[in-house]
Nucleic acid binder design. Structure first.
Lengths: 220, 220
DNA sequence: CAGGATAACTAGTCAGTGGCAAGATTCGGG
DNA sequence: CCCGAATCTTGCCACTGACTAGTTATCCTG
């Protein structure tokens, strides 16, 4: 019986796993969520998936490669969430709330996304995904009610798009966006790390809404 | 010749190192700064210090123990820096700048400080140091020019000090502090991780000053 | 000024990990 | 149908963190 079982894992019947790549990614997110990235082990992920310890190497070049894929997937999902939020509310404050919600709901992935020493930071797919997330973030500013350059969202690929992401927005709006991004990102990070004295009691989304409202041009 | 040399390390003459604990901590900070925490190796630190691979165990229980000490030292130095800043400028905005300057100047230590999965988060010394840093942060708010409860800094040990740190300040000032802390922490984190599109060009302190000025009750 | 307790360090060992190589099994396009 | 390619397995190696036992220096007490 070469196919050893693992608690909580359905013993695989066929020689091929079927969707090992996805299984490893979700297993990694789970493992990180309750044990931290430091304790993450490739071999443990393989055991959870019910495959041999060398199987993951065929889907990810190395450990950093797996985390690169995890981070890339995270940026892509964040982009989608931000785009959805922008369509729904047209508010930069709500965009920040969406950002926080994503961080809270995807704790493990979020932590990996912003720890560049964990993955291959020069991976083209990752860079593209991160770029898109930043674009989705800055794109929300052009639609701000009080944004000077507010206009229809031109997110088509025909856009020139030089190196700096958002050259269409004014410096003022850009600065407000930087402020909001920094604030909500810091809040999420500090909250997740338990740095706030009484983080267990309050509602994070509520608190984030309050402090985001203190950013000029976001207040309402 | 049992005492093997190491590039950049003065070969030790006596059997005892003298100040191995400090040497390991500084070596750790250096190693993390240019290779990341993930690549940090106890044995490598021992080699850098010119001692055997088991020597560090006498000063730190385990790897997490060393990082606990590093984080504790970081919180203590941050506390000192914040206190100094408060005496100098009496401005919450400048307090934030000091926070950022500390993060930039102590990149490796700063990263460790807010990654609780890396060290023993329940260590009493660490908790005390972190608490003091939070106190130093919130203490600055009581001295704010426009703070409702501004008064002489009562940092004596005679203070009751329940679990929540700063019960003396009003909710409004407390919220402004939370906003500023989140913002400057997020800015530092994003900057250090290279998340900003053009982080290499601009001056981080200058940018931080601008966005901190957008927090209501902090602006000029 | 002993001399025993103690702190600091060394050497050896072990399980676990990441990564590599070579072989086995299955799938899929000609 | 069959051969190439993708997937997975077994085996191996260097390295790491942690543990144990033994060695050397220091300190402190009588």
């Amino acid at each position: 019986m070469p196919l050893t079982s693992y608690p909580g894992v359905v013993t695989r019947q066929s020689y091929h796993h079927g969707d090992l790549r996805r299984a490893l990614l979700t297993a990694a997110a789970d493992a990180i969520a309750d044990s931290g990235v430091t304790a993450l082990s490739m071999r443990d992920l393989a055991r959870r998936a019910g495959v041999s310890h060398a199987a993951p190497a065929h889907h990810f070049a190395d450990k950093a490669g797996l985390l690169t894929a995890l981070a890339t997937d995270g940026f892509e999902r964040l982009t989608k969430a931000l785009a959805t939020s922008r369509l729904a509310s047209n508010s930069l404050l709500e965009l920040g709330v969406t950002y926080l919600r994503f961080a809270l709901a995807n704790r493990a992935t979020f932590e990996v996304m912003f720890r560049t020493d964990l993955y291959h930071a020069d991976d083209p797919e990752l860079l593209a995904a991160r770029r898109q997330a930043a674009d989705a973030l800055y794109a929300g500013m052009t639609d701000l009610p009080d944004a000077p350059l507010a206009g229809p969202s031109t997110t088509g690929p025909a856009r020139p798009a030089k190196e700096g992401t958002a050259e269409l927005v004014s410096d003022d709006v850009r600065e407000a966006g930087l402020a909001a991004w920094s604030m909500v990102h810091g809040f999420a990070t500090l909250w997740l790390s338990g740095a706030f004295p009484d983080s267990a009691q309050e509602d994070p989304v509520q608190a984030a809404r309050q402090i985001l409202g203190r950013v000029r041009q976001l207040g309402g």
